[in-house]
């Protein structure tokens, strides 16, 4: 097998641009997914069944259907309701954020509910309000437990952003496919793309590992 490094070099500027969009999409997904996920997670913990219902179904839908399908629905179905020419990067970012929010909502809920009930009771018995008990007692303990699964979700997000290639969002995978289409070569584009994803996810997991250790100390 001959590996044509020359076409990899030729595509390097596109891969660079693509990787920046991949990082961008993932970051947007992480930030908006976390904020929205917190809101939905809190919504899922409301006592009232009727208030809880929409939050429950949000999570059911986004976890229970493929992200691939969600991206197509959002880009070709939802976005055209707002704009004649949907931007694939925007559609991709929205899909990833909405999808990540569902998983992150579950991470928040599980993290908070994993804290022993006695902690809240002790805090309330000392006269603290619910908000004070959450802020000083429950969340500091819960966040520590949320870091590993959140990190996991962030890594998933980087990989899943590749699905935005299907709506021609010019992220990393898009350029891999473009190169494949131009030269009818398999190994060069896809191995290169795989290697770049690997570098991204390994770097992130190393970073998260450091964060976890710092929190443990």
């Amino acid at each position: 097998m001959d590996f044509r490094f020359d076409i990899v070099v030729e595509y390097a500027p596109f891969f660079l641009k693509g990787v920046l969009w991949t990082i961008g999409l993932s970051l947007v997904g992480i930030v908006f997914g976390t904020v929205l996920g917190l809101v939905i997670g809190l919504g899922k913990m409301v006592q009232n069944r009727f208030i809880r219902l929409p939050f429950d179904w949000y999570v059911h839908f986004f976890r229970g259907t493929p992200l691939f399908v969600q991206i197509l629905l959002i880009h070709f179905g939802v976005m055209p309701m707002f704009t004649a020419q949907p931007n694939p990067l925007v559609s991709g970012a929205i899909s990833l954020s909405l999808n990540a929010a569902a998983y992150i909502a579950e991470i928040f809920r599980a993290g908070i509910q994993s804290i022993d009930r006695g902690q809240m009771e002790a805090a309330r018995s000392l006269g603290m309000t619910h908000v004070q008990a959450m802020r000083y007692i429950i969340l500091p303990q819960a966040i520590k437990r949320m870091i590993p699964p959140l990190g996991n979700e962030f890594i998933v997000l980087i990989k899943d952003s590749s699905l935005a290639a299907i709506i021609a969002a010019p992220e990393l995978m898009y350029w891999g496919r473009a190169m494949q289409g131009q030269y009818y070569r398999v190994w060069e584009p896809y191995l290169t793309v795989a290697l770049i994803y690997l570098i991204l996810t390994l770097s992130l997991s190393k970073l998260l590992h450091r964060l976890e250790r710092r929190y443990d100390a």
């Binding site: 022993d116 006695g118 902690q119 002790a122 805090a123 000083y136 520590k144």
Partner: peptide, 27 residues
């Protein structure tokens, strides 16, 4: 009304001193 529980319910992420001073300071 102070309460003491069977299973102590100390706050594990705080030192003993912080466990005791938290409520007087915040409440």
């Amino acid at each position: 009304v102070g309460m003491v529980f069977q299973r102590f319910n100390l706050f594990p992420h705080m030192t003993v001193l912080d466990n005791i001073t938290l409520a007087p300071m915040k409440v």
